[in-house]
Design a protein around this nucleic acid. Sequence first.
DNA 1: TCTCGGGATGGTAGCGCTACCAATTTTGTG
DNA 2: CACAAAATTGGTAGCGCTACCATCCCGAGA
Lengths: 342, 342
Amino acid sequence: MIKPRSRRGGGRPTISDVARRAGVGAITVSRALREPERVSEELRRQIQAAVNELGYVPDPNARALASARAEVFGVLVPSLTNNVFAEVVRGIYDSLSASPFRIQLGNTHYSGLEEERLLQLFGSQRPAALIVAGIDQTPPSRKLLESAGCPVVQVMETGPDPVDMMVGFSHLDGGRMATEHLIEAGYRRIGFIGARMDPRSQRRLAGYRAAMEDAGLFDPRLVTTTPVLSSVSLGREMLRDALAKVPTLDGVFCNNDDIALGVLFECHRASIAVPKTIGIVGFNDLDMMQVAFPSITSIRTHRYEIGRRAVAMALAAIAGNRPEQRIVDLGFELKRRESTAR
Amino acid sequence: MIKPRSRRGGGRPTISDVARRAGVGAITVSRALREPERVSEELRRQIQAAVNELGYVPDPNARALASARAEVFGVLVPSLTNNVFAEVVRGIYDSLSASPFRIQLGNTHYSGLEEERLLQLFGSQRPAALIVAGIDQTPPSRKLLESAGCPVVQVMETGPDPVDMMVGFSHLDGGRMATEHLIEAGYRRIGFIGARMDPRSQRRLAGYRAAMEDAGLFDPRLVTTTPVLSSVSLGREMLRDALAKVPTLDGVFCNNDDIALGVLFECHRASIAVPKTIGIVGFNDLDMMQVAFPSITSIRTHRYEIGRRAVAMALAAIAGNRPEQRIVDLGFELKRRESTAR
DNA sequence: TCTCGGGATGGTAGCGCTACCAATTTTGTG
DNA sequence: CACAAAATTGGTAGCGCTACCATCCCGAGA
């Protein structure tokens, strides 16, 4: 019986086509492409020529199937549009673009259950590494991560008990520093305004609370939170709520910069002088913070660098030399600006 | 010779394990999973039980290899952090999350060459569909898209000559409407401020120019552009430049909302009254535009919906019923706000 | 001269799944 | 009730690639 040239695939050149053209065995082509130093100079050139002539591109699916390892990094973030995670993803993407690894993106929508589902799904692909945002995985998720059989990097936060590796910073310390800055600047009735109270925001709040208690200024009525997704317009509304509760409010530490911007706009609208009557501090230090009028004090975090670092650590682990420092704290910086310059 | 149970794969259950457990053939399991209606009620239940007990998850790589079609949507955008494209990606992601399709994300960094490289790479995976931002592909890119052998959707813009399908709107019309609005509001020396002059921005500029010429108001000195990546801080600087060139400037149509926000802040800083002395119009209508003080007039675009629509069209095409309307114009809306209420 | 080690190359046998077709059972029809 | 048609199930043969092992060739050392 005559075997058809190719039953299904669209006639795209395969590794055997290249091998035939170059007059070598298929396996040698495979080697020339993956471990060039193990193939003689001459064959390597011949093979490269055949590859170019045919326009051969290896099929990543066949490769993954044969080697039981996909050249894929699984990346889990809670939001695609939140600029903070977009920056992390950009860092990961840029660091990976020169490598053969692709990115498999998952959006958990801040849901533990969705995270479990995605982890389950990603596991079936035998990824080369997993990068997940946060350190508060549910027990099933944690188990999945531990049995993933690949390097795992938890990003955005640091904590005492990594699944494998970690890159981030302390949100509690960030919240504390922001609050202490307000206190030092002379503010006393300092509110906390936070939307989308995910675990990281909770820790910023804990930092706020610690600082306030240390200064003997804490009052639960100063805290205004909501589970609603954060946005600039929400910041505006929340300042109104906070002022309704505590008319003597003279400062706010915002959960993030979007909220801070909304707060600033509401101050303008209500003719509340910033920083004179109310001081404002944000979190993350988006570009617009330094441009706002008045410019807004914020905690600068290193999102892009976190993404890059996570990839670097994962790649090192894949290459066999696992970094000895498993927890990397990239810290943060307080950017003092006009909004707290009383 | 004894065949080892599994030479490589980490002992994860395969389709044959499920088949054995359910007492059926492997192919029936495959069918039960992909086309349940073609398997009897009873077997379906048995198989589902076996799947659950074993925790079986199909290997997408093997699946892709066998069926010569990966369950992957290739998505090409020029930026991951630009909120506009993040929204498109979110729409795509959400529409795809209930389907078996995954997303393969590519960041072209606004580079035609990078786009070609990524298209070449994506092609090797035989994606189920391709979604690409923009309509200005280079000739090689266009050829790659045409020969991709899968549905292709160009998004964010509409134009006369789709590779396959299109979802977007007319940036030229958007630019024209924004400018006409300023003219109607009584502004005369209306500037155009644009960063990152990609093809879409170019067309917005063309719309601006058309409107200005129609009104007999066009003056090349009113146009200020830069290839630099757009940001709020850049908006601030560019307004300064524009005012230095044309001190009588009394309105600006900004390339996008980031620029518009920067312009607004600079006006505050320089004590220029908005909308009295200068009117401002942005583009895209990000959430913050309606909260800003004064709130900023902008062209509302439907990014999330574009993503959803693109997926819907691609899925329909995959299912065999290609939508008869190949070009979908989702339009835009002018949101009139305080920044132009003279 | 002969053996041995090591580098270069190739053959074989799958990886886990599905396309294709064959076999079997069930249902419908006159 | 016989026979065709439809529905259901299974076997076989790869998809394109790489792990594993065998083979070959060369120069070094005995």
